[in-house]
Design a protein around this nucleic acid. Structure first.
Length: 589
RNA sequence: GGACCUGUGGUGCAGCCUGGAGUGCACGUCGGCCUGUCAAGCCGAAGGUCGCGGGUUCAAAUCCCGUCAGGUCCGCCA
């Protein structure tokens, strides 16, 4: 027990650097690590900072030994107090140093392509090309180790709550819908393919039919969709499913897991996680994944302008936002906001500046002269504004108006969210269907196995778009961490949903036949959830990009800059799979 | 599929708008000096396809077009 993490040093060393302390003065120790820095004062005095994962220690040498940055060394030396006045309070081992040292170079090293110091910004493409060097940096060491602790805490939480870890296949069967799947051609069945699972969704439902009661897995999921700051081709989810439970039970299981995960990252969360309905989230925050670390909620002002003469204000729905930081909004910034709103799909955005005058508060705006006195005073009252405030209004159908202004709210307000605050929120009562496609068929909001809300059953035929589902999302600081639902376990309901979705019996059989068949043999009521561990870990370590918590991520165009993947392969491999390449940038021969 | 930003010695940046010799800064690298530094210090040196291709011009890092790469976003992600 002599490392900073309490593990025993063995093999080529008998101490971890981070564990060295004044208590060992007078002992000879052997440590191993990388040369972090050399400070040479002539051949009689050389300071070498040696780094292992646990810390850095100053090694005093007297030789002319050729030591350069990132050389791998074994140092045998005497733990000594530093001479008075030369202690370094910035270093955990700053009151001691290793003297009378014997240094052996285990590996020499070329100068690294970039500085290993966190304070030096390096282009991400360069970091990814030499990822193994980038990973030596404190930031990545900290992030990946925090992620490991998060994983461990999640596993403990699951075990504590009686869940059984079960692995599911990576080579799965195509179920064409939802995310685009990665395809794996079969050699033994030419022309046929496996696909990599976008999630273990169906497999885990089968495990419920199989009677495992509570299943979980830290599962890799793969989706061939375009990448983003919070999306990689492959990502990791905590996936769970449980039988004979309610929505509330699943939410409790997950709450325990994420609160434990946060604690593992030294972040304390109020164990009471807030809850908001999808409708309220849209109405008040203009998002189904609201960032609730700051206020500035949207205000409905439709009724204020119910009889307006102004064309820009005659919309089915008008949402208003009081700008969180009005002083910074110059005329040109306001014009930018109008452009931004249009880019987001709004017809426009109206701004009104509140100014005090002898006659009370007035509104300055391109449309102010068209507003009646009643409208002006009603708007000022509804928005509860004061001198200097700026009111932003978007008019459209309800969902669009909310979404656009919700995005503007984030653009303007995010900077005032406290970076150390962690606001988990449950979003519940999602609609079962998110709309109607061109052919008049309903579109699933979650997936077609989601159980409708019991109270809304009678409206499935008459008013399907108003039907809520037993599904629930977990949101953290404006990021969707994951979602889950109670599943349909009875054939009659499933058939009804399939028919509403316009999925024929034959089509359902082709896609999910094995699942529907399984449900005939005694399916327990069940439900589950999955949340993204990459996203959770990124948020908990304060990163804005999940690549910072992934050891070897892909670029936005799906390349691995270190290995060069994806690469063209030999034609013989295609032949073996019974495939031919139609178009290729290079001749493959 | 689309919009926007970025690309200049090994690293980070300035130069670009308003064309005039690869001009500058910091770090690193290499060499020399240096016995208490810790982002050591001092002196010196090396290091460049200004992403790539084309165009405009007497002249292009700079202006224009195309293209590649990286990033952010829209679409997409049941």
């Amino acid at each position: 027990m002599n490392g900073s993490s309490g593990i025993e040093a063995r093999g080529l060393r008998n101490r971890y650097i981070g564990g060295l302390s004044g208590g060992e003065v007078g002992e000879r120790v052997t440590v191993c690590g990388w040369v972090a820095r050399v400070r040479e004062h002539g051949e009689h005095l050389v300071f070498v900072d040696v780094r292992d994962y646990s810390g850095i220690v100053q090694v005093v040498a007297h030789s002319t030994l050729d030591l350069r940055s990132e050389y791998v060394v074994q140092v045998d030396g005497l733990v000594s107090m530093r001479p008075p006045g030369t202690e370094n309070p910035g270093l955990a081992t700053g009151n001691i140093e290793l003297t009378e040292t014997v240094i052996e170079v285990l590996s020499s090293a070329d100068p690294p392509p970039f500085s290993l110091l966190d304070r030096v910004d390096v282009d991400e493409a360069t970091r990814l090309r030499f990822r193994y060097i980038d990973l030596r940096r404190d930031r990545m060491q900290h992030n990946l180790r925090a992620r490991a602790r998060i994983n461990s805490a999640i596993r403990s939480s699951m075990e504590r709550q009686g869940f059984t870890e079960i692995e599911t296949p990576l080579l799965w069967t195509p179920t064409p819908e939802g995310a685009r799947e990665f395809v794996v051609p079969s050699r033994l069945h030419q022309g046929s393919t496996y696909v990599l699972p976008q999630s273990p969704q169906i497999a885990k439902q089968l495990l419920m039919v199989a009677g495992f009661d509570r299943y979980y897995q830290i599962a890799r999921c793969l989706r061939d969709e375009d990448l983003r700051a919070d999306r990689q081709f492959e990502f990791t989810q905590l996936d769970l499913e449980a039988s004979f439970v309610t929505q509330r039970d699943i939410m409790d299981f997950i709450s325990d897991a994420v609160v434990s995960a946060a604690e593992a990252a030294d972040i304390h969360v109020n164990s009471e996680i807030g809850e908001i309905s999808w409708k309220d989230a849209m109405d008040r925050f203009g998002s189904d994944k609201p960032d609730m670390r700051f206020g500035n909620e949207l205000i409905d002002v439709t009724s204020v302008f119910a009889r307006t003469e102004v064309r820009a204000l005659s919309s089915p729905c008008l949402k208003a936002l009081v700008a969180p930081n009005p002083v910074s909004l110059s005329r040109s910034k306001l014009d930018d906001l109008v452009d931004r709103a249009k880019l987001l799909g709004a017809k426009g955005l109206l701004w009104l500046r509140v100014v005090a005058s002898d006659n009370g508060l007035l509104l300055e705006s391109p449309v102010s002269k068209f507003l009646t006195e009643q409208e002006t005073s009603d708007l000022i009252a509804a928005a509860q504004v004061a001198d200097g405030d700026i009111i932003l209004i978007v008019g459209d159908i309800w969902e669009k108006a909310c979404q656009v202004l919700g995005q503007v709210r984030l653009d303007l307000g995010k900077s005032q969210a406290h970076p150390d605050e962690y606001k988990f929120t449950w979003v519940v009562d999602f609609p079962l269907f998110e709309g109607i496609d061109q052919d008049g068929r309903l579109i699933s909001a979650h997936h077609p196995f989601t159980m409708p809300n019991q109270e809304d059953f009678p409206r499935l035929e008459s008013d399907p778009l108003s039907v809520r589902s037993q599904s629930y999302d977990l949101v953290l600081n404006g990021w969707e961490l994951g979602s889950g639902s109670i599943r349909i376990h009875r054939g009659a309901i499933q058939s009804k949903i399939f028919s509403l979705l316009g999925i024929s019996e034959e089509e359902a059989h082709n896609r999910f036949g094995f699942l529907l068949e399984a449900f005939k043999f005694g399916a327990p009521p069940h439900g589950g959830f999955a949340f993204g561990i990459d996203r959770l870990a990124a948020l908990l370590v304060g990163e804005e990009n999940i690549r910072e918590v992934i050891a070897f991520p892909k670029t936005q165009s799906g390349s691995d800059l270190m290995t060069g993947a994806p690469k063209e392969i030999d034609r013989k491999v295609w032949d073996l799979l019974g495939l031919a390449v139609k178009d290729s940038k290079k001749d493959l021969s």
